[in-house]
Design a protein around this nucleic acid. Structure first.
Lengths: 239, 239
DNA sequence: TCAAAAGTGTTCTCCTTACACCCATGA
DNA sequence: TCATGGGTGTAAGGAGAACACTTTTGA
């Protein structure tokens, strides 16, 4: 089963190899609720159990590329916010074989995904607050990913990756309330947010949420890129 | 070369396996300088080049355990602060074979390490500020680890892992100045630090640094454990 | 006209920052 | 006695947190 690779020689021959997989924790935000893309495992053991979406890392691709490949196959999306979470390598984690998994979490805009493709793959959006039992250590991965999301969102405005490109401030607030499972004061939220000068106000309103309508904004990515390198404080509240 | 494992059956047979290694970024603090434990690579390719210390992950151990095993072999130390940094899996990262590496960084007290053992393994402490070129992507790993150390030390008092169990406040300040490469105001540093109530003052002085001597403190681990679960703000300065 | 969500300012408190001198001691 | 590092306090500014009412408009 060994495909040829670019490597001319295997210098490490007596060492043992392991299966290397990736698993993706794919977050989305819809109807004011934080969701996760799951599907039914298609291979034994535990075929049919709810599972994260993953793949083995092939010899000709890096782990992040394997994760991106899977994300593209399922959602049709490219160019997505994705970060490595951590690796999972307990000896007994997978009864199917000795296999380590490198978990990645991704933030996507559900409405930009190819819904037919998602459905074709049998993938389903589940509310984060009422997840089914997941196969192997995938439940732990989700817990870890949620922790990381909360940590990260406190210092980086990654929330915008989950919203449409044009979004309203009340939408963003609802997202943060979903991530942190707490209410946030509207006035303080707006003040903090607008003081960062990272939102570009548009001359459009979103009328879907209320009669009055809420102004739409775009995220100022280029300005953010510049700030990011120096680091800055996006924190919304004290611990 | 396949040793028997506990796995009765390999469910994933047609997939390909990869070599999985760990590399350790081992930080120490000595004479006011942040240091890193390096040694000369002992295997081809690039035998003799300066390298981090690593090992392949064996079938009967997890990646963190492989990293801890190596740390124990080299330094004699157990029960060390160690965290996963990230994985490195570029296809061409290692000309020796397709091999991914999971990097861990560790903080140790140099004076508690077994110096004879360290020497026997040919390991050498290098100042972080003047590192030689490292093999493969190990230079990138060090850069990433330094970034993570800075991030982490801002919110968690992990610095104490690098100091003797009894330490003085000026020592701790010098450590933070080494980590962040900047001067810190003595009065503000002490005020912030003591306000956390995580240091237990001892009735001893360390006379080695000055004629006057500086009071020694212990870190209050049990109190820290309690606080950690709720999260708290150790930040020493604003970004 | 009313229900429902959007939008807006001020005060208090606490944390961060900037800043300069005395203390204890061994040499 | 003096050189060296250890140790201390205060004032000003800024950010977070608490808090309630007006605006808009479709139904």
């Amino acid at each position: 089963m060994t495909k040829p690779t670019h490597h001319h020689k295997d210098y490490y021959a007596p060492e043992e190899k392991l299966y290397v997989a990736t698993d993706n924790i794919i977050f989305g935000f819809d109807e004011g609720v934080l969701k996760l893309l799951l599907f039914k495992r298609r291979v034994e053991p535990f075929k049919g159990t709810m599972s994260l979406i993953g793949s083995f890392v092939h010899p000709d691709e890096s782990a992040p590329n394997a994760a991106k490949r899977v994300l593209r196959e399922i959602t049709g999306l490219d160019d997505i916010f994705m970060e490595e979470l951590k690796s999972y390598s307990a000896v007994e984690r997978d009864p199917g074989a000795r296999c380590i998994s490198i978990a990645f979490y991704a933030l996507i805009r559900i409405e930009e995904s190819n819904k037919a493709l998602v459905e074709k793959h049998g993938a389903i959006w589940h509310e984060v607050n009422s997840l089914p039992d997941l196969v192997l250590d995938h439940g732990q991965m989700v817990t870890d990913a949620l922790g990381r999301l909360r940590e990260k969102a406190q210092f980086y405005p990654i929330g915008v990756e989950l919203l449409p490109k044009k979004f309203t401030i009340p939408q963003l607030q609802k997202l943060y309330e979903a991530i942190y499972q707490r209410d946030i004061d509207t006035r303080n939220f707006r003040k903090k947010l607008l003081s960062l000068n990272l939102l570009i106000p548009l001359d459009e309103k979103d009328m879907s949420g209320s009669k009055k309508g809420a102004y739409l904004y775009k995220f100022n990515y280029s300005k953010y890129k510049k700030l990011e390198t120096k680091g800055f404080n996006f924190s919304l509240f004290k611990t």
